[in-house]
Design a protein around this nucleic acid. Structure first.
Length: 493
RNA sequence: GGCGCGUUCGUCUAGUGGCUUAGGACGCCGCCCUCUCAAGGCGGAGAUCACGGGUUCGAAUCCCGUACGCGCUACCA
């Protein structure tokens, strides 16, 4: 535990969805803040007007909220350091740019995109070690600048990086990382549309919002020296940095849209629990040092420290994610799962069915240990919602014997004589039939399951019978008796 | 190309100089449980700790080099 109250931020740009890597970054910020009794702020980095996406911010906030990552300050809850949209903080950036300009730490650049492009290409052709701006506009005289300004020429503002110096970052996860300013370009701070670039905005905001720890993805490590320079030129103390390892595709490249789902909402829509996603993503790049794999948010908060974050990238492995979802589903109660099942049923082909909560609870209880997703109940145990219309061939072949028809008939007769049977009544009757015929239980159970469900797998037979109920069981046996002997015959010929 | 970061079973990882014949998890295989399928339990295969040099009595662990991978290299974030 650090001995002061830290302030961290999650600063996504509203691209339309929350990237799973973004969720991990948000989570690590959240865990760090909560573990240390600090505050976490949500700040929207919407400085790229070309990338404006309608509704993106609302969607971002909604999915973050769904995930269980709650912010102390941000667009919805407000706070003392707002506004929390960078697009609403333009004057702030300009006032600090003015100071930079006055101190000659930044300068106006009137170069056209065309000249920049040519410059880059010629540097490339000359095989220069690094490609960067040639400080051409730094040599403009005051008069020239004034002239261009009066002519309303478009310009950007660049950071005036002093070459030949060493800048270092003390990164919590990577240790000391050094950079030579010879390799650092005169970064554009203000674009010609008057909006700041990420580099300027994030430094100004982090300072003004009193951010103590910048926890972000490794893709930012290379531009951190620019940020350090900015803090130095503005004479501000810099925050502590922690660059998180990247989340990777199976081919080890940065997790991207092209190779599968990357949006948190994709996973949510597929039926992953938020608990699963949080648990899984926490273990990608972090480990408490023990063998624990199952976590809830509370435990994560208790155990999380930045010092135990790994350095190397982690492949996002769906197999393990699936297993974890099963684990979290098994930890849920039936009543936790019920609303989700009802929701899924409403949007399935069984939407017209009027099923009681009591019935669904029984189904849920029977299937609880057998599913990875709640939706598996509908896809794997559809026989709870409709009579079998076809019967699995392999199971018929394996389970339908010469005496199956006779045994099933006897069972049917006995069941029809039962009044308000309990699960035990069914069991007694079934045992009686097998005893009378001097055969093992399985001899009747398997054909019965086939008749009731059409498949060879599923919950215990007595649960199945009990859930379906006497009337339905009778109907299904009759139907099975009608069809199964014929099917068996067809298969054999 | 330049700069930076990384490299332990297929994957996620434990390991911070002797406790390691490198431990766990997912997945895979087998056995047990059992009316089936799961769940659960037990066991197995699977890593010359990227490679090469050092340092040390002793290295996955420290140092150097090489290779490979990845990231950044935009008036994107």
């Amino acid at each position: 535990m650090i001995n002061f109250s830290p302030r961290v931020r999650f600063a996504p740009s509203p691209t339309g969805y929350l990237h799973i890597g973004g969720l991990r970054t948000a989570l690590f910020n959240y865990l760090f803040a909560k573990h240390n009794n600090g505050k976490i702020v949500l700040r929207i980095e919407d400085t790229d007007r070309n990338r404006f996406v309608e509704g993106a911010v609302e969607n971002l906030i909604e999915i973050l909220d769904w995930s269980g990552i709650y912010f102390d300050e941000g667009p919805t809850q407000g706070g003392d350091y707002g506004p929390y949209f960078q697009s609403k903080r333009l004057e702030l950036y300009h006032s600090y740019t003015k100071k930079l300009l006055d101190d000659k730490k930044a300068y106006r650049c009137f170069c056209s995109p065309e000249r920049l492009k040519e410059l880059r290409e010629s540097q490339q052709k000359q095989k220069l070690p690094q490609i960067k701006y040639d400080k051409h506009c730094l040599n403009l005289s005051e008069d020239e600048i004034q002239n261009k300004l009066n002519n309303n020429e478009r310009y950007v503002i660049r950071l005036n990086v002093q070459p030949g110096e060493l800048v270092h970052v003390n990164d919590i996860v990577r240790g000391r990382v050094e950079f030579n300013t010879d390799n650092i370009d005169d970064q554009i701070l203000i674009k010609s549309d008057g909006y700041p670039t990420y580099h300027l905005a994030n430094v100004v905001d982090d300072h003004l919002m009193k951010i103590t720890h910048v926890i972000r993805g490794e893709e930012w490590l290379s531009s951190t020296p620019k940020h350090i320079l900015l803090y130095d030129y503005l004479e501000w103390e810099h925050p502590v940095f922690a660059h998180l390892p990247l989340l990777l595709n199976t081919d080890k490249s940065k997790l991207s849209k092209r190779q599968g789902d990357v949006a948190v909402e994709d996973y949510r829509d597929k039926g992953y629990l938020k608990e699963t996603l949080i648990n899984f993503v926490a273990l990608l790049g972090w480990n408490a040092g023990d063998d624990q794999e199952y976590y809830d948010m509370e435990e994560l908060i208790k155990k999380f420290t930045l010092e135990r974050v790994n350095k190397s990238g982690a492949v996002f492995n769906i197999e393990k994610l699936n297993w974890l979802n099963g684990e979290h589903i098994r930890k849920k109660t039936i009543d936790d799962l019920l609303p989700e099942l009802k929701k899924l049923l409403r949007s399935s082909k069984y939407e017209e069915l009027s099923l009681t909560d009591e019935y669904l609870r029984l189904v849920l209880t029977a299937m609880h240990e057998r599913i990875t997703f709640v939706k598996d109940i509908i896809t794997n145990s559809w026989y709870f919602f409709e009579r079998p219309t076809q019967y699995d061939e392999k199971t018929i072949k394996k389970r339908w014997k010469n005496d199956s028809e006779s045994l099933l008939k006897q069972f049917l007769d006995s069941v029809e004589g039962l009044e308000n049977p309990t699960k035990e009544d069914f069991e007694t009757v079934l045992k009686k039939v097998t005893e009378n015929n001097n055969v093992g239980l399985g001899r009747l159970i398997h054909p019965l399951r086939l008749a009731l469900s059409g498949v060879g797998y599923g919950p215990g037979i007595f649960d199945l019978i009990y859930i379906l109920g006497k009337e339905e069981v009778v109907e299904r046996i009759k139907k099975g008796l009608d069809i199964l002997p014929k099917l068996k015959n067809d298969i054999q010929n």
